[in-house]
C-alpha cells in the first residue's frame, strides 16, 4: 500500500503558509458524539469558479476515510440530495441536520465552503490558491463538533534559471502563464488542503473507528 505521507511531507516543505489561525479548538462536543460516519454534501461555493464544487468533491473522500471514518460515496449522495429537492449548496446548510440522519443514516454531515479557487498573475509569477472552511455537524443534536479552515498556495515562480536573461525569463513566464490558463488543475491543492485540515495536530480530526489510533489519540486534542 502506498503511503499517504509523501504528498503531505512535500506540502509541508512547499507551503508552510498554510497555518492555523484562531484559538485552540474545543473538542468536548466532538468526543461527546464521536461519529463513525460522515456524509459529505456538495460544497458551498463562495468563488466565481462555477466548476469548483464538483472538482473539489472529487478530492475530499480519501483524507476523511483515511482518518478512519466511513464516508458515504459523494456522487451518490449528491444525486440523492437532488432527488430530495436539495440540489443547491446554499440551501443545504439550512436543512435540519436530523434530516441527513433520516435519509442517509449518517452520524455527521460535513459542510464545506470553498473560499478561494483562483490563479493570479503578478509580473513573472503565477500563484494558485485553494482555500476551504470545514464544518462537521452532529446529525442527532445538530451541534457543530469540528471546524477547520485551510488555505494552500502554490507559487510557480519559475526559478528554472535556464539563462536567457530577462527576455528569456519574460517569455518563459508568458508561456507558463498561458499553459496555466488552460490547464490549471486545482485538485492537488484541494487534496492538500483537505489532508492538512484533517491531519493537523491539535486542530485536525481525531481518528475514527477504522483507524488504528481510534480512541488512543484523544490526548493529542485535549489539554
Amino acid at each position: 500500500m502506498k503511503s499517504a505521507c509523501l504528498p503531505i511531507a512535500f506540502l509541508a516543505i512547499l507551503s508552510l503558509e498554510a497555518c492555523a489561525t484562531g484559538p485552540k479548538p474545543d473538542y468536548s462536543k466532538f468526543f461527546e458524539h464521536h461519529p463513525r460516519s460522515i456524509l459529505i454534501v456538495p460544497p458551498f461555493n463562495k468563488t466565481t469558479a462555477v466548476d469548483a464544487p464538483g472538482f473539489f468533491l472529487t478530492t475530499i473522500s480519501e483524507p476523511f476515510a483515511e482518518k478512519g471514518y466511513y464516508v458515504f460515496p459523494v456522487f451518490l449522495t449528491r444525486d440523492i440530495l437532488i432527488d430530495m429537492g436539495l440540489p443547491d449548496e446554499g440551501v443545504l446548510s439550512q436543512v435540519q441536520p436530523q434530516r441527513f440522519r433520516e435519509a442517509f443514516g449518517a452520524d455527521s454531515v460535513l459542510f464545506v465552503t470553498i473560499k478561494a479557487w483562483t490563479t493570479t498573475y503578478v509580473l513573472l509569477f503565477s500563484s494558485v490558491t485553494v482555500e476551504a472552511a470545514y464544518k462537521l455537524v452532529d446529525t442527532d443534536s445538530g451541534e457543530v463538533i469540528w471546524e477547520a479552515s485551510q488555505k494552500v498556495v502554490q507559487d510557480s515562480s519559475g526559478g528554472g534559471g535556464s539563462g536567457g536573461g530577462l527576455v528569456g525569463a519574460l517569455v518563459g513566464a508568458a508561456v507558463k502563464a498561458a499553459l496555466h490558463a488552460v490547464i490549471t488543475d486545482y485538485r492537488p491543492l484541494a487534496r492538500q488542503a483537505n489532508s492538512l485540515a484533517v491531519r493537523k495536530q491539535r486542530s485536525g480530526l481525531p481518528t475514527g473507528p477504522y483507524g488504528s489510533d481510534y480512541q488512543k489519540d484523544y490526548a493529542n486534542y485535549r489539554d
Binding site: K2, C5, I8, Y210, D217
Partner: peptide, 15 residues
Amino acid sequence: VLGACVGLMGCAPSL
C-alpha cells in the same frame, strides 16, 4: 520523508 512527516503531522500509513 516518512519520518519527517510523522514528526510534523503525526500521520500513519494508508488504510
